[in-house]
Amino acid sequence: MPKEIGQKMIAQNKKARHDYLIEDTVEAGLVLMGTEVKSLREGRASLVDGFAEIDNHGEAWLLQVHIPQYLNGTWTNHETRRRRKLLLHKREIAKLEQRVETKGMSLIPLALYFKDGRAKVELALARGKKSYDKRHAIAERQATRDAEREVGRRLKGL
Rank of each mutant, 00 (worst) to 15 (best):
A143W: 05
Y113N: 10
S46A: 07
R82N: 13
N56I: 13
R145N: 13
V31D: 12
R141Y: 01
N72G: 11
L112N: 00
G104K: 00
K85Y: 04
T76Q: 12
L123H: 04
L63G: 03
L87N: 12
A139W: 01
S106Y: 07
K85D: 14
F51G: 04
K15C: 03
G104P: 09
A45S: 10
A124W: 07
Y132N: 09
M1G: 11
L40K: 01
L71R: 08
I10V: 11
Y113L: 14
A126C: 02
K15Q: 08
L158W: 03
I54Y: 08
T25R: 04
L63D: 02
E36K: 00
L87R: 09
I93A: 05
E53G: 12
A28N: 03
I108E: 04
D116C: 05
M9P: 06
T76C: 04
A137I: 00
R84Q: 09
E36H: 00
M105D: 06
E97A: 14
P68A: 01
R41C: 02
Q12F: 13
G34E: 08
F51R: 03
S46K: 06
L47Q: 09
E140R: 13
L96P: 09
A11H: 08
V48W: 02
L110R: 05
L30G: 12
L47F: 08
Y70H: 08
F114H: 06
D133T: 00
A111M: 08
G58A: 09
V37C: 07
G6Q: 12
R17Y: 09
L123T: 04
L30I: 08
Y132A: 08
R44L: 09
K129N: 00
D19E: 08
G43N: 04
K95Y: 13
E36G: 03
K95I: 12
Y132E: 12
K134Y: 06
K120Y: 03
A11W: 05
K90T: 15
K120A: 07
L63V: 10
V31H: 11
H78C: 14
Q64F: 00
Q7R: 11
E97D: 15
L88C: 06
R145V: 07
E122D: 15
G43D: 11
G6T: 05
V37K: 07
R153Y: 03
T25Y: 02
K3P: 00
E42F: 09
H89R: 14
A60E: 10
H18A: 13
G128I: 06
S131E: 07
G157P: 14
Y20F: 10
H66Y: 08
G117N: 06
G6K: 04
Y113C: 09
E150T: 10
H78Y: 07
R44P: 01
L155K: 07
L107P: 00
M1D: 15
R99K: 12
R154K: 09
V121Q: 02
K15N: 13
A119S: 14
E27H: 02
T80L: 15
K85F: 05
K3L: 12
R91L: 14
N72S: 10
E148G: 12
K95R: 13
P109V: 11
H57Y: 10
L158F: 06
D19V: 01
L32N: 02
V31N: 11
R81V: 14
A124Y: 07
T35V: 00
K38A: 14
L107S: 03
Q12Y: 15
I22M: 06
K3E: 15
Q142P: 02
K90D: 13
E122P: 05
R82G: 15
E4C: 08
A119Q: 10
R41H: 08
E59M: 11
K15Y: 01
A11T: 10
D49P: 10
M33N: 12
